[in-house]
Amino acid sequence: MKIKSVHILFMVVTFASYSCKKDNYKEPAAQLSGALQYKGENIGVERNQVPFQIYQYGFGKVGAINGTFEQDGTYGSLLFSGSYKFLIPSGQGPFIWKELAPGVPDSIAITMTGSQTLNIEVTPYYMIRNATISGGSGKVTAVFKAEKIITDANAKDIERVSLYINAGQFVGQDNIAVVNLAGADITDPNNISLQVAVPSITPAQSFVYARVGLKIANVEDMIFTPVQKVQY
């Protein structure tokens, strides 16, 4: 049998009328959003590397709704109305997340009745302050201060600081060039300077995206400054 346009028309009509059926459930519509913050300032992290988990109460099986923070520290999730808890798994993130017992992270109770903004206040090990990133003559330079926030028994050293540049807006592991400075080589944490040469980019562009990351010893995730577009 040859496929004629009448057959195609028939199929289209069939499919179209099937899709007219109503869904059983309305799609989730309540937007939960916010950002990782320390005293009102967003904490930048690596894209897709710092996870969070949202659990909804009241259903048989226990499983998390998983998500990850964006590189500027924001997050978002579309949920149904109901009560939830929000947590960050143990050992994740460049900050201390309170634990009820070792390995059991504390959680934040959330009641969703409509969209809401919930900023997650955490205490990072370090903050990168006063970062200025500038470009010129084929190089990108960053000057910043690494402020130690946690100074008690939980304090950790800086493993390294890194200046990342990329042709696109995701900067971190995605990069075209990086320069590292080991923590032991930092002479003055209040005034750290890094410089990286921009390699040739195809197709050519006159700008790169750059940001500074700080790796804390024995902590997996790095802390970052906001991404900046730099002309060089």
């Binding site: 499983g63 998390a64 798994p89 143990s90 050992g91 390995g103 997996e220």
Partner: peptide, 23 residues
Amino acid sequence: GNYYSAINDNILAANPKLVKQPN
């Protein structure tokens, strides 16, 4: 978190005595 592979959520939900892997 890759040092020990995750136990899947179905198994964790079926047996509350299991603890999750670190990190």
